[in-house]
C-alpha cells in the first residue's frame, strides 16, 4: 500500500515535469521542470534498489546536463517567451497526435505482454562489485566510453569555439 503510494508520487513527479517542459513558454522554466523530471527518475531508480545508478543520475543529469541546458538557453538569449501562438499551428497538432499514438501503442502492448517476472528481492550490488565488474568483464566498454567522452569534450569545444575572422576563407 505505502509502496504503491510512493511509486505513484515519484511517477507523477516525473511525468508532471515532462508535461511542464512540453507546455511552458519560458525556456528557463522548461529547463527547471526538466530538472524535476530527472530528480523523479533518480527517485524511481532508488525505489528500484539501484542506488548507484540513482546517484549517478543525480550527479550527471541534475548536476551537469541541466546546468548545461540552462547555460545554453541563456547564451542563446532564449529566456523570453516564444513569439507566436504555440497551440494553433498544424505542425503542433500533428506532432502531438503522433506522440500520443506512440504512447498509446506502447502502453497497450505492455498491458498484454507476458514478461517473466521474478518476485525476488532486488539483487544486492555493492559499489565494490560495480568497480570490479568495470575493471573485469566490462573493461573494454569502459575504455570506449572514456575515448567517447574525450572526443565529445574536444569536439564540443571546437564546434562552439568562435571562428577567427577571415582565417578560413
Amino acid at each position: 500500500m505505502i509502496d504503491t503510494l510512493v511509486f505513484l508520487i515519484f511517477a507523477g513527479l516525473t511525468l508532471a515535469g515532462a508535461v511542464a517542459a512540453a507546455l511552458l513558454r519560458n525556456l528557463v522554466h522548461c529547463a527547471l521542470s526538466l530538472t524535476v523530471t530527472f530528480a523523479g527518475l533518480a527517485l524511481l531508480y532508488l525505489s528500484l534498489g539501484a542506488q548507484f545508478v540513482g546517484f549517478t543520475q543525480v550527479l550527471v543529469y541534475i548536476g551537469a546536463v541541466a546546468i548545461l541546458v540552462v547555460f545554453a538557453i541563456l547564451l542563446t538569449r532564449g529566456s523570453g517567451a516564444l513569439p507566436g501562438n504555440l497551440v494553433t499551428t498544424s505542425a503542433w497538432r500533428i506532432g502531438w497526435v503522433a506522440a500520443v499514438a506512440v504512447g498509446f501503442v506502447l502502453v497497450a502492448a505492455l498491458q498484454h505482454a507476458p514478461f517473466a517476472q521474478s518476485a525476488a528481492a532486488a539483487p544486492a550490488v555493492s559499489v565494490q562489485q560495480i568497480g570490479q565488474a568495470l575493471m573485469g568483464p566490462f573493461v573494454l566498454p569502459l575504455e570506449i566510453v572514456g575515448v567517447l567522452l574525450t572526443v565529445a569534450l574536444i569536439g564540443a569545444v571546437i564546434v562552439a569555439m568562435p571562428e577567427r575572422q577571415g582565417e578560413d576563407q
Binding site: 511517477a11 511525468l15 524511481l44 506522440a99 506512440v102 504512447g103 498509446f104 505492455l110
Partner: peptide
C-alpha cells in the same frame, strides 16, 4: 509493468517535445 508504463509515457512525452 507499472515502471514500464511510466517509461512508455515518458518516451511519448519526449517524442512530443522533440516533434513540436
Amino acid at each position: 509493468t507499472a515502471y514500464l508504463v511510466v517509461a512508455a509515457l515518458l518516451f511519448a512525452l519526449g517524442l512530443g517535445i522533440a516533434l513540436t
